[in-house]
Write a protein that binds this DNA or RNA. Sequence first.
DNA 1: AAGTGGTCTAGACCACACC
DNA 2: GTGTGGTCTAGACCACTTC
Lengths: 240, 240
Amino acid sequence: MEKQTLQKHTLEKQSWKNIQAQIRQRIAAREWEPGDLIPGESQLAQQLGCARATVNRALQGLADAGLIERRRKAGTRVKLYPVRKATLEIPITRLEVEQSGATYRHQIKKKKIVKTPPSLAKHLNLSAAENLLHLSSVHYANQKPFLYEERYICIATVPAIANIDFEQVSANEWLVRNAPFTHGDVAISAENASSLEAEQLQTREGAAIVVIDRTTWNQAKLITNVRLAYAPGYRMYSAI
Amino acid sequence: MEKQTLQKHTLEKQSWKNIQAQIRQRIAAREWEPGDLIPGESQLAQQLGCARATVNRALQGLADAGLIERRRKAGTRVKLYPVRKATLEIPITRLEVEQSGATYRHQIKKKKIVKTPPSLAKHLNLSAAENLLHLSSVHYANQKPFLYEERYICIATVPAIANIDFEQVSANEWLVRNAPFTHGDVAISAENASSLEAEQLQTREGAAIVVIDRTTWNQAKLITNVRLAYAPGYRMYSAI
DNA sequence: AAGTGGTCTAGACCACACC
DNA sequence: GTGTGGTCTAGACCACTTC
């Protein structure tokens, strides 16, 4: 009690964010150079007048941010090459469009049940006999094409999709709300629009478009694989 | 002691990750539906036989992952639209190339000191009188162009750059190691290669290329703005 | 005013990696 | 073995928000 009151008076607020900021600054100021070992948690706790758990939380955040590297017994080091990370949010397309102030609409272009196409079978190591629902659709913002989507949904994993009217709710939105996934992967690239894509996006063939390829799983079961071709001019932003 | 031993015997390992997985599963299983309020921390702690702090840690992770939404007094709700996030690592170009097994080389194409160009002045709200070091360079993987980079560095913020030989260390690498930044922003887009870019990247004009525009700051002071034009075929990957 | 999450503490034990 | 980070606990107080 006595100690705590003292701290409050001398250092005002103590929180793990505060501690983290102090350590961050000491790293930025080169007090500990890249590659250096920094003091142990207990030592820092004593220096900074807080509990070890608080220092631990601060350091875990810094490790997460890629500034330091921690190993039991070996201690904590300032990274030689700090790894910065950009976090991109993956929004529901309808919300993304609406948040930009535009009116959203989407249209199904194709819908049929197919066996696993060879291109996917290899990449997703899926049985060639698997039944997939193949959907193509275009999403519009203010009646202008925004995104052309080519999607495969694994029927065995998500049997309920058989009864969904995808004219009402996009597959994207329905899946996000009804088929929670455990993990997945994303690839982002740039491609020249094919003639089909150019037609659907009402742009010229060869225009540079952002393409996102995304696959999601529930445990070991594939849920969906989708290729998203955004209309020219699409940009993704992130703070770092 | 007695209690702890009991837990060990009945539930094997208890950790916040375990608790988190249990809660995750209950959300996935629709035990709590999207929009529902889930029990408070103390209640969950009692149910799960652990301390409230442990539940707190688990729930904070889930909030971070975008699955739930927490507010004091209001409680914790399952998000209607879970926001998934993809985290992209921003590597040093040399390391990115070398990790792919290729040999790295880079070459400075232009280097001169300029006043803030109008295009940047607006976007970065920078004084037009600011002195910037303007560098263009090409990074190669196995002698093939990998990345064309157009960079501006704020001399007032990083005076030390005046004496750096950027033939030896790329600006990218030098800055990462010597000019820590507090925050920044990134934009990713697809563009058709201009004639200059096509020439530098040894590709055809109009080829679709990934373009990353990145700006970093130290507190209120601009460090650098860079436009990275990757050779056709470049892909960024992320797990989600 | 009251209830919820957010954080801190002191102490304890564990898990892992290095010696 | 031994030292480091990783985690857990019980209890406490704080801060924010809704009522």
